[in-house]
Design a binder for these strands. Sequence first.
DNA 1: CGTTACCTTGAATATGATCAACAGGAGTGG
DNA 2: CCACTCCTGTTGATCATATTCAAGGTAACG
Lengths: 261, 261
Amino acid sequence: MADIKQGKIKSRESQLSTTLKDQLRCQSCGLTPLCLPVGMSEAETEKLDSIVHRNTPYHKGDHLFRQGDKFKGIYVITSGSVKSYYINKHGEECIVGFYLPGELIGLDAIHNRVYSCSVAVLETTSACEVPFSQLQSLTSEIPSLQHQLMCLLSKEVHNDCEMVAILASHSAEERLASFLLSLSSRYKSRSLSALEFNLSMSRTEIASFLGHAVETVSRTFSRFQEQGLLEVNRKQVKLLNIEALADLGGNTLTSSTTGFP
Amino acid sequence: MADIKQGKIKSRESQLSTTLKDQLRCQSCGLTPLCLPVGMSEAETEKLDSIVHRNTPYHKGDHLFRQGDKFKGIYVITSGSVKSYYINKHGEECIVGFYLPGELIGLDAIHNRVYSCSVAVLETTSACEVPFSQLQSLTSEIPSLQHQLMCLLSKEVHNDCEMVAILASHSAEERLASFLLSLSSRYKSRSLSALEFNLSMSRTEIASFLGHAVETVSRTFSRFQEQGLLEVNRKQVKLLNIEALADLGGNTLTSSTTGFP
DNA sequence: CGTTACCTTGAATATGATCAACAGGAGTGG
DNA sequence: CCACTCCTGTTGATCATATTCAAGGTAACG
């Protein structure tokens, strides 16, 4: 509802100065170890870089694409965060995932060429757009690109399995603990603080994602705080007792993925 | 616990007669349209076929592999069904997915070369084992194989997202309805009856998968029967009112994936 | 400075979990 | 073939947990 104001969509492409553009190349991007160019030579990375579109930053509420749109390519968040959601039969927004810098979006649309979810921006966010047809041509030239793309797809499958495991856990405490630990480990692998971070999503959005009522999420946060597991003030979260949280969220597939053995 | 009797593991390979083996080639397999050989020439399919291992059938309780095992390859169920599960911190079995003929298993292990779940057989089951290193070599020779592998990975991501959506739905009725519809549409796309089928998994296993107590699953089945939505007798299920079930399980990502628009 | 949206908390209600008992098949061994 | 046990599934009663409805508080924003 909030963003039917599509009239303001403009050509985001190429509105950046040349000097800024130089800083925004795959070769100099800090996310490279998580992204597509893993294992690629300088020359190969340059080829990949040449097909990538970098748009002007998106703002809260903007959409990368919408449910049902024709599949054009995959997106990689470079800064900020987004939510992936669909509208169910009752007209409610159901959130299927959150994506942080370095994470790929749209992988589920490769097989049928249609985006099955909408992706909206939670805060000011930059993303790279990789047109899929061109990417596919490149993979036949660059074996390590093909390999890395497959690895990233596999990783996505793995993450989704883990999410299924979290959601099958009954209690609100387990789910929220697992959710926070997931965020924490993802921040950690991006060299950000694993213990103190900002939630870019609202309580309502967390609730939708975890399959709970907003009030339950809020109460669970409060309970965690009372128990000294964390400090929370609106969006600001500080994890105080990771081990206890990990004990609660006992439903992680592998301890290696949480980063907390 | 039930299957520590691993002593009985023998070389399953090549215990089949030559005539039987001829029937078990990719070229003559009915699952081809769902599996890897999509879009491949006769000669290419033959190449793929030559790297595939076909073991003697597995029996209930047998394992294809176990959580933590080194990744060797992906498996495709050709008949029967399996469950994928892990053991959580409390020692409980948590089921992450069920797989039917034509579905690929182990895709989540490509990126880190370790199976993150155990996969056990629910009934007498046949499967093809595709060694990954050889498959990867083939993909560079056969572009359509690479493409199809990517598509299958993408489809898996899509299915998992859908599962997340189902599990985020609150009520027991919604979840069970979605689960049954998912099975139904998968049987349908395998040219089996979409309305009448056998559940190869126990109530306990359904409960574990959906994140409910056994009793809840049992009661929900009974309620569906009282409402005339289905007939159920132990494992035998007959769906009587698909539309009503679809209304309940309103949390499917895309109607196209359920096959019931 | 006032409005709005978001978050939190409280009380009542509904839903599912748990505990317990029982029914009915499947399989076993006589 | 029957009697037996074991296992799975069903049903009932009670209890715990999360939802819902309601109200109030607080940060954000124009």
